[in-house]
Design a protein around this nucleic acid. Structure first.
Lengths: 129, 129
DNA sequence: CTTGACCCTATTCTAAGTATAGACTTTATA
DNA sequence: TATAAAGTCTATACTTAGAATAGGGTCAAG
């Protein structure tokens, strides 16, 4: 499997795959004589795992931790649970922030009707105060 | 007013003020003989405007647009309204994404009880599939 | 007159990629 | 078989919105 094929089946871009490798998230693959990367199903599974994590907005640093955990199958998975729960807390915080922001923006939007000039603009006056 | 004073009253860091200047968001201030920046109340107002916008997560590029608008007081402010409304849409989209994400994470969290090992971990098995 | 609190520029770093240039290899077509 | 197109390689720069640092200059108090 060449890098283009791996990109196609995982939905990652070629640059992203090389980027993960450079960052140590993805193991260095074998190379052909022409120095082309070749991947097996293990690599495919690893990249799928990374992709899945990223789609959940788990950071690369956190993914590194998870990958280390995966290499110790008999250890407790409590830290994995903790990581996800911490992540949920952060997502909740972000949602709260954005909801607050949304209300502020909507209030601001209503403060300016149509056919106003810049100097009469309710939005700009709120932004200046 | 020196940069440290401006930083204190606006709540921006000194580096951030210099950064805004470098990016052209903030006008270049006068300098003392010792090359220290000195600011007047106009600068204070400008930075307050920028800070207010940033707190609403308005990008620096968008702030630039808004600042240009402010310099044409007799123009229509329709584009300002449009910018804010577009911003509201983006915030709503982000909230939707995060809500979806939250549900996925919570479902995942429930899929793994306490006292499991890594190889039995419900979270990791969902992340791998 | 020295010490501490400021200020200056320039450079590097962050996250998670994306984009580009210039060179090489493989594959498909004529 | 020759050539063109598609794929791959490395290295580098760019993105956002700053934060951090090094190494130096300046100002006010004791």
């Amino acid at each position: 499997m060449k890098i283009g094929d791996l990109a196609k089946v995982t939905g990652c871009s070629i640059q992203t795959i090389r980027f993960y490798e450079r960052k140590g998230l993805l193991a260095k693959p074998h190379r052909t004589e022409a120095n082309y990367r070749t991947y097996d199903n293990v690599a495919l599974e690893e990249l799928t795992f990374i992709k899945q994590c990223r789609s959940l907005d788990i950071s690369m640093k956190e993914i590194e931790t998870l990958l280390q955990n995966k290499n110790n199958p008999d250890q407790s998975c409590a830290s994995v649970n903790a990581l996800i729960d911490e992540h949920i807390i952060q997502v909740n915080e972000k949602i709260s922030e954005l909801s607050q922001l949304k209300m502020t923006l909507e209030k601001m939007s209503k403060s300016c009707g149509t056919d106003k000039t810049i100097k009469e603009c309710g939005i700009l006056s709120e932004l200046t105060s």
